[in-house]
C-alpha cells in the first residue's frame, strides 16, 4: 500500500505533446478513476505510472520514491488490461502464478496465494482451465487474480470492463469496488464510461485533450463542474447549455448557462419550448424540447408525473441555485 504522486507529468510522442502537465496526489488506499473521451491521454497517463511508457518530463512517485527510471516489475504495481492479456497457453493457475514464479517465490507460498485469490474471485473450480475455455467475466476475474496474488501496493486498471456486455459490466463494477474496499490497495482506474467513473471513484480525474480539467469526488464534480467540458461529459443525459442571456442576472463575460436535465421543471409560465420527442425509460421520462431560439434541451421527469405529448408546447422553469455560467473559453464564471 502506498501513495502515488504525479508532479508536472508531460508526455510527447516525437514533437507532439499529448499530455500537458498533470499534478495529483493520491492518498494511500484511494480509488482514483481517470475518465475522459478517447484520445484524451488517460491510458497514456496510466501507462506512465505503470512504467510501460517513459515520462517526458515531471516525476512519478510511488510510496514517496521517484520511480521514473524503474522497470514496471520494480515499481510494486499490478495491472489489469482491457483485453485481459492472459497467457493463452497457460492454465488459470499458471497465469496467476507466473509473476510470483519469476520473482522466485517458494512453490508452497505461490499455491497458498493463488488459492486465496481464487477463493476471493470464485475461481476455485476453474484453476486447471485455459483462458479460452472461460467466459468473458471469468477471464476478467483471472486478470484481476493475477494482479491480486502479487500483493502490489498499487493496482492499475486500463478499461478493464469495456469488453464485457452491459449486464456483466454492472456486476463486475460492483465486484471491483468491493474487492478494492476489502484489500484497501491504492488504485488507478482508466475508463471512458462516466457511469463507471461516478460509481467507482473516491475521486476522479476528468481529462480533456491531455489536461486534467477537474479532480474531485464524483458528486462534487457532478454538482460543481469547473469547465463546460466536464459539465457536458459527466452526467447522462448531459447538462443542457442555454444562451447565457436567458438569465437576467448573468455575470459579465458569461456566454452559456448550464443546467442539468433534472433541474428543469415544467411550469405554468416561463420559457416556452416545444416537445420534439419523449423517451419513457420506466423510472423516468426524458423530454427533448426545442426552445424558441432553436436550442435543444432535455428535461428529466419522474415517470409518474403526467408528461406532455410530442408537439405540445410547455413552459420551463428552473431554480437560480441550480444554474452554472461558463465564459467563451468554457471556464466557469
Amino acid at each position: 500500500m502506498a501513495t502515488v504522486s504525479l508532479k508536472g507529468i508531460t508526455k510527447s510522442f516525437g514533437k507532439t505533446e499529448v499530455i500537458h502537465g498533470i499534478d495529483v496526489d493520491i492518498r494511500d488506499g484511494e480509488f482514483i478513476v481517470i475518465v475522459g473521451p478517447s484520445g484524451c491521454g488517460k491510458s497514456t497517463l496510466l501507462r506512465m505510472v505503470a512504467g510501460l511508457e517513459t515520462v517526458t518530463s515531471g516525476e512519478v512517485q510511488i510510496g514517496g520514491a521517484r520511480v521514473n527510471d524503474r522497470e514496471p516489475m520494480d515499481r510494486d504495481i499490478a495491472m489489469v488490461f482491457q483485453n485481459y492479456a492472459l497467457y493463452p497457453h497457460m492454465s488459470v493457475y499458471d497465469n496467476m502464478a507466473y509473476g510470483l514464479k519469476i520473482a522466485g517465490t517458494p512453490k508452497a507460498e505461490i499455491a497458498e496465494r493463488v488459492a486465496e485469490a481464487a477463493t476471493l474471485l470464485q475461481l476455485e473450480d476453474y484453476l486447471k482451465r485455459r483462458p479460452r475455455e472461460l467466459s468473458g467475466g471469468q477471464r476478467q476475474r483471472v486478470a484481476m487474480g493475477r494482479a491480486i496474488v502479487r500483493k502490489p501496493s498499487v493496482f492499475l486498471f486500463d478499461e478493464p470492463l469495456s469488453n464485457l456486455d452491459a449486464k456483466l459490466r454492472v456486476q463486475m463494477r460492483l465486484e471491483i469496488k468491493q474487492l478494492q474496499r476489502r484489500l484497501g490497495v491504492t488504485s488507478l482506474y482508466v475508463t471512458h464510461d462516466q457511469v463507471e467513473a461516478m460509481t467507482l471513484a473516491d475521486r476522479m480525474i476528468v481529462m480533456n485533450a491531455g489536461r486534467a480539467d477537474q479532480i474531485g469526488a464524483p458528486l462534487e464534480v457532478y454538482a460543481n463542474p469547473q469547465t463546460e467540458f466536464v459539465a457536458g461529459f459527466i452526467g447522462s443525459p448531459p447538462m443542457n447549455f442555454l444562451p447565457a442571456d436567458m438569465a437576467h442576472d448573468a455575470p459579465p463575460g458569461a456566454v452559456k448557462l448550464g443546467i442539468r436535465p433534472e433541474h428543469l421543471t415544467l411550469a405554468q409560465t416561463g420559457t416556452a419550448a416545444k416537445v420534439i420527442y419523449t423517451e419513457a425509460l420506466g423510472a423516468e421520462t426524458l423530454l427533448h424540447v426545442d426552445l424558441a431560439n432553436g436550442t435543444r434541451a432535455t428535461v428529466r421527469q419522474d415517470a409518474i408525473a403526467p408528461h406532455p405529448k410530442e408537439g405540445e408546447t410547455v413552459h420551463l422553469a428552473w431554480d437560480a441555485g441550480n444554474r452554472i455560467f461558463f465564459d467563451s473559453e468554457g471556464q466557469r464564471c
Binding site: A78, M79, F81, H89, I102
Partner: peptide, 29 residues
C-alpha cells in the same frame, strides 16, 4: 500477438528472453 501480452509479462517481471521462452515460444508451437 497482442502487445498487451508482452506488457503483461513485463509487469509480471519477465525479462525479454524469459518472455520469449515462456510465452512466445509455446504460442508459436
Amino acid at each position: 500477438v497482442p502487445d498487451e501480452l508482452a506488457e503483461a509479462a513485463r509487469v509480471d517481471g519477465a525479462r525479454p528472453m524469459r518472455f520469449f521462452w515462456d510465452i512466445l515460444l509455446p504460442m508459436s508451437r
